[in-house]
Design a protein around this nucleic acid. Structure first.
Lengths: 407, 407
DNA sequence: GAAGTTTGTTCGTAAGCTTTACTAACTTTC
DNA sequence: GAAAGTTAGTAAAGCTTACGAACAAACTTC
């Protein structure tokens, strides 16, 4: 009996989490399979199986087209087991054969396999913009195929949710292949079940974003904080297991990966460094009422305002001073975090014309001056390469990871 | 890789590197069995088995005496499987039957089981003292049964290693039951294989402490940074999955647990916050040459010196001011870390007469003032309950975790 | 004393991965 | 040009692991 014929519907139904609705058609079995649901800890054979299945898919995803034998060597599993898992994955449409390898080697020519990167779509939504909700349809490689956006127009609460839901539905409609899942990055505190505990700007409090959207779309939905999504996007490319991403926009927030895993925090509020006070010499008044919060120093509105105040014909040096001062403040706040976590890399996301230059240089210099040389000698501080789409890319990583165990 | 699951066990696997020799006799099979050997991925049935074995042991360890049926309910495994695993554990001498349960209930009376807490010993060594190396023999519950120490006498390099090795051997000799393993907490940067990459005070650089000691004693050895050991000790008792421990002595260091796992850092130098500069208003000159490092503000020699300078008949308020200022400085450094990680709890270790009072109060107040209210409202900042023995207890936790998968 | 309950074991089964052995299909070598 | 060697993928058998069903033991309750 081949794996594809195996009637395992019951097992899937049991594994499927209550919060995430399974998709229709070919996807019905997918979302449940790869997730390791181990609330209290025991490991059953089927868990091992799904782990190995995800491992094969992951290897194929990151290493690219290769044969079953290559996969066996790469994963440490035997060729037999790999063949079995691949048959299962092919049965679900996630993996396809590309044909025989061309190069001339002794032995039977290998049949190349690859993830069916165009067989499924991911819908990503970025609610972190101040004026618009942005969305996209991506393929399994994370390439953006379609875009759409909705002006937020100051909407909050239920109206804001409605805008998000409509945009998501519109994008699902644009998808020309089955949708694997929908990912959402939103500001605020989001718990692991995708409930927005608190997002003041959007007027959301205890909004079960993931559950409601999942019910409405009939698709698997994953929601997380926008900075967390961003750091997932960056981690997808980076090889490092420790990474911090600082997202600078209207507010300032961060996402952290430590030991290869996303840090959520005890109250799901990790990365909220925007209202940490910087230094011991005061600073600009913050919207939160205190003086010298990081956000008061560094937010895009504040920087823009300061630069505008210099006038259009301002000295280059004067502009640089403003930006360098903001960078120094960022460095001051990051130094203890870098020291405590021994971080090798920090990535900034936000308007490059403000961040990429004197600001980032001053931040790195400040970090070096305020931490042990051994730790920050190799520290990298750089702009993201994802640009404006970082949250969208991150939501795709989240869906891939959540649905297929791939990142 | 599955985000929630893939790297699990890495901490253990890394802690127990290939350098760890298995013990003799009854212990020969233990150390290898419980370790989750999953460098990059595949899961075999035997891995699942060892995981479940550790789960049973862990449940028994933390919940205390209970029946096989209780264990089955607690772990989610069936009674059959639990019986099988318990038989294996009893065969290795790790679990014993205590006799029938006394209370009057319908049904066949249950046979109570417990971890054989006195059947094995753990030897712990604390090299973090400035003048002496301290050691102890502990049972599996972490109770200290014997103590021994060696004056360091300014020894460094090979002589210091010799002192440690001799103390360890002496303690192994004092043990009246088979030794499960030896744990060492040392200052400096220690990699996952127990090699001390750098410990300036001891004159150690790239010293394979774990491997050499393991070869010499013929026992499993685990070595880690002293602050990491300390936070493991604290975590053993705490229920929280996120925890920071700040160890204040001659130097200042920290150990971090995030998401239930020890943070090692990209260069194995996590927690090195002693030489992070505090604030933007200068400060005392540090041994590292900079002004205003945390260690320059907060180290025990510095505090003692300041208090001594006040004179023996000093005002109580003056003493409090000195300590409160140090506490404020600690709060300033910790605020960004608390914000970034959303930490629920910070524990201090060090001389209570200095730390437990105005210092800790000022630190907490400063933390509250410099972070978002939502995050620090429930923040706990307290002294450790382990006192001077925190590193010794931590080394025991490390051995338990590394050898048995129990913590 | 009968009925019900709980414990712990025995026996057979399903799932999963491995080893061993095989065929297919190619390159290299003589 | 044929034999030898190499590699890919499959098939069969076996081992490990955990499960479910059934059962005996031993107790409480009625």
């Amino acid at each position: 009996m081949t794996a594809t014929e195996a009637p395992r519907g019951t097992a899937q139904a049991e594994l499927a989490g209550p919060a995430t609705a399974a998709g229709p058609g070919a996807l019905a079995g997918l979302s449940s399979r790869s997730r390791a649901l181990r609330p209290s800890g025991k490991v059953l054979p089927e868990h091992a199986r799904s782990h190995n299945r995800a491992l094969v898919l992951q290897t194929l995803y990151t290493t690219g087209a290769q044969s079953r034998a290559d996969l066996a060597r790469g994963t440490g599993l035997t060729r037999v087991t790999v063949s079995d898992l691949v048959a299962e994955l092919m049965g679900e449409g996630l993996v396809v054969e590309l044909g025989q390898r061309e190069d001339a080697r002794p032995g039977k020519p290998a049949t190349l396999l690859d993830v069916a990167r165009s067989a499924f779509r991911i819908v990503g939504i970025d609610v972190s913009g101040h004026r618009v909700v942005r969305g996209a349809v991506l393929d399994l490689s994370g390439t953006i195929l379609e875009r759409a956006e909705s002006p937020l127009g100051g909407a909050t609460g239920e109206r804001a949710f409605e805008l998000v839901a409509e945009l998501a539905a519109r994008l699902v409609g644009l998808a020309t292949a089955p949708v694997l899942g929908v990912g959402i990055g939103t500001p605020g505190v989001v718990d692991p079940r995708g409930t927005v505990r608190s997002a003041p700007n959007l007027g959301w409090a205890d909004l079960p974003l993931q559950a409601r959207l999942s019910a409405r779309l009939g698709l698997a939905v994953h929601a997380t904080n926008d900075a967390n999504a961003a750091v997932l996007a960056e981690h997808g490319a980076a090889e490092a297991d420790d990474l911090m991403l600082v997202k600078i926009g209207h507010g300032v927030g961060a996402g952290l990966i430590v030991g290869g895993r996303l840090v959520t925090g005890s109250g799901f509020a990790s990365g909220e460094i925007g209202h940490v006070v910087v230094g011991t010499d005061g600073g600009p008044r913050c919207v939160c009422g205190r003086d010298g919060c990081l956000e008061a120093w560094l937010s895009v509105p504040r920087l823009t305002e300061q630069l505008d105040a210099l006038g259009a014909d301002a000295d280059e040096a004067a502009r640089d001073d403003v930006l360098a001062e903001a960078g120094r403040r960022l460095g001051i706040v990051l130094a203890p975090v870098v020291g405590a976590l021994d971080l090798p890399e920090i990535v900034l996301s936000g308007p490059a014309h403000l961040l990429d230059g004197p600001l980032i240089a001053a931040a790195l210099e400040t970090l070096r001056k305020r931490t042990m040389a051994e730790q920050t000698r190799d520290l990298r501080l750089r702009m993201t390469a994802h640009g404006q789409d970082i949250v969208l890319h991150g939501t795709a990583v989240m869906v891939l990871s959540g649905e297929l165990g791939v990142s």
